[in-house]
């Protein structure tokens, strides 16, 4: 199963790089779909069916919005200048990525290995969760019962974002 995850992650990285480098914006958006739908398969392999359901809906909606934006504007990427400066940029990018990975490795050395997770926090949710909330699905129990205020905050953020989109996309602007 670990091998399968690695293969899907490599596929996602390839899709991400192609999506950022594509000349045509429509193919960039479709390659971005590889990342999102690969994430769905990762969630299924990692025993998170709720997340897979939510992710597949969110990814489809995001793709529809992006394609609508591109069809209403242009499909061509902007022109980029080459030259000696871009070589420097690439060198600095590799140095930065190496430093980032090195320090990430140092910092997460205390983290337990993949699959060896120790549940300290979650025992309070896993053991009495089903009786306390009456929900067979522990994730739903956590979201809507133990951490209901979090979900209220999430609903507030969603409402604010929808108001924002409606404000920005208003047909008539005030002068």
């Amino acid at each position: 199963m670990e091998i399968l995850l690695i293969v899907i992650l490599v596929l996602m990285i390839g899709g991400a790089i192609f999506s950022l480098e594509a000349r045509d914006l429509l193919s960039a958006v479709i390659a971005y779909g590889i990342v999102g739908f690969g994430l769905v398969i990762c969630f299924l392999l990692l025993q998170a069916p709720d997340l897979a359901l939510v992710q597949i809906v969110v990814e489809t909606i995001t793709l529809i919005i992006m394609i609508a934006v591109i069809l209403n504007s242009t499909r061509e990427d902007v022109k980029t200048r080459g030259g000696i400066r871009s070589v420097f940029f690439v060198i600095f990018a590799f140095i930065f990525a190496g430093l980032f990975l090195y320090f990430f490795n140092r910092v997460t050395g205390t983290l337990s290995d993949f699959g060896e997770h120790v549940m300290r926090m979650s025992e309070a949710y896993v053991l009495p969760g089903a009786e306390k909330t009456g929900s067979a699905n522990l994730v739903t129990g956590v979201i809507f019962d133990f951490r209901g205020y979090d979900t209220l905050g999430e609903a507030t953020i969603l409402f604010t974002a929808v108001i924002g989109v409606l404000t920005v996309l208003r047909v008539k602007g005030r002068k």
Partner: peptide, 13 residues
């Protein structure tokens, strides 16, 4: 289940 619940919130946001 705890990170799953948190990430569910994060995906929608």
């Amino acid at each position: 289940p705890l990170p799953q619940a948190m990430v569910l919130t994060a995906i929608v946001i």
